Amino acid sequence: MKIQNFKVGATGMDRFFGPLEAQVMNVLWDMDHAMTIREVQTALKPVKLLSFNTVMTVMNRLVDKGALLKQSEGRSFHYIPSESRADFLNHQSRELTHELMEEFGSLAVNHMVDILEEVDPQLIQALEEKIKQWKNNA
């Protein structure tokens, strides 16, 4: 699934989805099982009172985007994320990195390396190990 509009100024899942879409995705990821629209609506109630039709529209848009799978079970539909939260974040970060490299090349690499000074030293170590693996396989 390719996200079309990455929002640089947003945080968390709001970078990839609209605010309500992000809340729906988080409910489904947190529950870790298929849910009906009514179940998602109920889970969202502590945050926001939303109509059934609003939740249904958002969930069906997420199906259209490929973020959710819609399964018929009896007389109702159950929705489940098309991939786990971890897999989603992995795919999206890979896609964003690829796009940055295609468009900005060495500038993107330089900025990423500069930012490494501000992050956890374990991240630098992991990067060094990844570079060693890459060199050994090349």
Rank of each mutant, 00 (worst) to 15 (best):
R61I: 02
N26K: 13
I80V: 14
V8T: 14
P19G: 03
N53L: 05
G105Q: 14
D64W: 05
E103Y: 05
S76L: 13
E39Y: 00
W134H: 13
T42M: 08
D87Q: 12
I3F: 03
E128K: 15
A22R: 05
F88L: 05
M35L: 15
F104N: 03
S76T: 15
A10R: 14
P121G: 07
T42F: 04
R61S: 08
E128L: 15
K70E: 13
K135T: 06
T36A: 01
L96A: 03
A138Q: 15
L44S: 00
S51W: 00
G74L: 09
A10T: 08
F104D: 03
I115V: 10
K45D: 06
E117W: 09
I131S: 11
L44W: 02
P19D: 04
H33F: 00
D32C: 00
N110V: 04
Q41R: 15
N137S: 14
S72E: 11
S51K: 09
E103N: 12
L69M: 08
H78F: 13
E102P: 01
I115H: 13
D32K: 05
H33E: 10
E83C: 15
V109M: 12
V119S: 10
L50Q: 05
D120Y: 08
M101W: 02
F6R: 10
R61L: 04
K2E: 14
F52Q: 08
H33T: 03
V27T: 11
T11C: 07
M13R: 05
Y79H: 12
S82V: 08
L44V: 01
M25Q: 11
F104P: 00
W29T: 07
K45W: 06
V8D: 14
E129L: 07
F104E: 04
V55S: 07
A22W: 05
A34Q: 07
R38T: 10
